[in-house]
Design a protein around this nucleic acid. Structure first.
Lengths: 226, 226
DNA sequence: GTCATCATGTAAGCCGTTACATGATTGC
DNA sequence: GCAATCATGTAACGGCTTACATGATGAC
């Protein structure tokens, strides 16, 4: 889930860890994200070959970056600090911080993986997962988008049915006042709202899709990038 | 969180693990609960002295049970187990299965712990935790109940504000169409609904409380039942 | 000079899951 | 006889959190 989010933001542009977290949180995609989760996740993704890091110092750009990425832990001492000192004088780059950062870039495999994860419908059950996938839905084909929404809808619908069945259990009849019931009734309301929202999205999606196939526009995937 | 749920159902009656799970799920308190979570949790609670198990076999009752429980902690009343033994013989217990089960009983300490956890307001942030505590709210004093609701309300309200701020970010303006926005707008709607629900509950709670102090009725804890 | 923010990590631990192991009893 | 359900557990692992360790830089 975190993986998708990371790959998703890196699909638009290269970022370092700290920035990724900031973006994910400030844009409302994740309510919170600790460094203790993020950095190991980045390490895992890099190890898997989905992303590749390069050190970014004010002057040194991406050519050297490749070499830095190879070593497990580059001694970023002596020469580097020297370069930085020199560079600081001339460039005064991203406004702030000359400190070396590890900037991550999506690899080809990473792009593949992103698409795969985005299309993997096994996790519609979890709202958080679904939300993140929907947030990146512009990277999906209209058909895949519709499938995502329909799947989520059917999941919510069946959960709703299950809970409605519970709330109608005979023993609940004389529990009307109990707090248990308040919770369940609230759950039901929430799901009904979710369902209505999904229905609405599905409708819009179908309209849009129709329009697109109708007039040759392409609202598909690559149109968004920068 | 699981702990509260377990203690909560055991507050009403003695149950064995399998039954606890069934109850918790069938009553809609938990969407799912695996044995791999439940049994270790029961073991932890017993080790902590909050619950105490005794073996229940169709005829042979708890004289042996006491020894089976081994007691890391307080050796509970012998008289209690005696009563059980007698009951087992006469009552022809739960109709089914002669297989030995470990029936759990809340200890005095367990009742204390339950109350403490129920009154511990540190976890209003998580809806699941809040829901479970609300479901057992009949065990709380009217004042504590109100506090629980108010705290949850203030949490949801501040989260809502945060997200509304995000959705109003200038950069979002020209993102109207983006899927990120759909997700956020949906979050906002959900929270608004939650807030309205909470407001309603709080109002009802206050009315009930007022009525009680006003006319001498006591809608405190036991009045709610049935 | 000190505090907030930027920046990257590690370690310990909680909470939960699935999968595995085991076996009795009931209903068909 | 066979499948479903009852019943209790263990092992391995996943995902996330907090707390810790470290240090540079910018703002006041």
């Amino acid at each position: 889930m975190l993986e998708i989010a990371i790959l998703g933001v890196l699909a638009d542009r290269d970022l370092h860890g700290y920035e990724i977290r900031k973006l994910l949180i400030e844009d409302g995609l994740l309510m919170s994200l600790s460094f203790g989760t993020l950095y190991p996740a980045l390490a895992r993704l890099e190890k898997a070959g989905a992303i590749k890091s390069f050190l970014q110092t004010p002057s040194v750009a991406s050519t050297q970056a490749a070499s830095a990425a190879s070593s497990v832990r580059t001694p970023l001492t002596g020469s580097l600090t020297g370069e930085r000192a020199a560079a600081g004088v001339f460039l005064r780059p991203p406004a702030r911080s000359t400190r070396s950062k590890k900037v991550y870039k999506l690899t080809d495999y990473g792009r593949e993986l992103f698409e795969k994860l985005l299309n993997d419908d096994s996790e519609v059950a979890d709202r958080r997962s679904f939300d993140i996938r929907l947030a990146f839905a512009r990277h999906l084909s209209p058909a895949a988008r519709l499938k995502l929404l329909e799947l989520r809808k059917s999941h919510v619908a069946s959960t709703l049915e299950r809970i409605e069945a519970i709330s109608k259990q005979p023993k609940r009849k004389h529990w009307k006042q109990r707090y248990e019931n308040l919770v369940i009734e609230h759950d039901i309301e929430s799901m009904q709202q979710d369902l209505a929202w999904l229905d609405n999205l599905i409708k819009k999606e179908k309209d849009g899709s129709q329009a697109a196939t109708g007039n040759g526009q392409q609202p598909a995937e690559p149109s968004r990038q920068q």
